[in-house]
Amino acid sequence: MSDIRIIKKRYIFMASVFIGLALLLVLLPERHTLKELKAERLLQEVNDNTRYFTTDDVAEKIIANDAYMQLIDVRTPEDYKNFHLKGAINIPIDSILNKDEDGNYTYEGILNQDLKANVFYSNGTIYSNQVWLLLRRLKYKNNYVMEGGLNKWIETIIKPTKPSATASQKELDRYDFRRAASMYFGGASVTVSAEEDVPAPTPVIKKSASKEEEGGC
C-alpha cells in the first residue's frame, strides 16, 4: 500500500513540475531582445518573390473593394496629396519607425497584424522594398509590395498597351481587364476595342512549379 502512495506522490510531484514550468513561462516578463529576424533568413526572404502583388492584383482588389487589403503609400505627404491610389493611406518612409511617448512604434498596430494584407507602393520599388525589409527585420507579418510601383501602375493599368495579335487568350483577357480598370480609374482614352477581330488564340498555359514545403512526416 505504501508503495502505491509513494508512486502517487511522485506523480503529483511530476505534475506540479510541469504545471510550475508552464506557469513560469506565463509569469516571466516578456523578452524583447530576440525580436529581430536573423540575417540569413532575411536574405532568403528577400530572394523569394512572394512578397509582390502585381498591379493587376491591386487593381482587381481596389475595384472589388477588398477590405482585406490596405494600400500604404510610402512617398512624401506632398506626393501623396498630388496623387495616390484609391483607399491608400500615407506613411512616409522616414516616419515608418516613429515611436510614441511610451517608446512603442506608432504604426505597429497597422503594420503588424493578422487581418489585412498591407501593400506598400512608391514610384518605383526601391522605397517600398526598403520599408518591407525594415519591417520584416522586426518580424512584422502580412506586408507586401506592389510590383513595379506607380510607374508600373500607369504603364499597365492606366495606359495599358495592346498585346500583339498573336498573343495568348490569357494576355488578351488581361488586356481587357486592364482597359476596364483604366476606365474605372478614369485613365486613358475610352475607345471601343471589343469588336476588333481577334485571331484564334493560341493558349500558352504556363504552369508554375508549385513548391510546396514537404510534409514533416
Binding site: F18, L25, L34, L37, K38, R41, K139, E213
Partner: peptide, 23 residues
C-alpha cells in the same frame, strides 16, 4: 507533447532557438 512544447518555449525564451525558423 507537453515536454517538447515547454522545452521549445523555454529555449526560445533563453534565446537558444529561433522559433520563427523552425518548420
Amino acid at each position: 507533447a507537453i515536454t517538447a512544447a515547454i522545452g521549445l518555449l523555454f529555449f526560445e525564451y533563453f534565446g537558444w532557438i529561433d522559433l520563427s525558423a523552425i518548420w
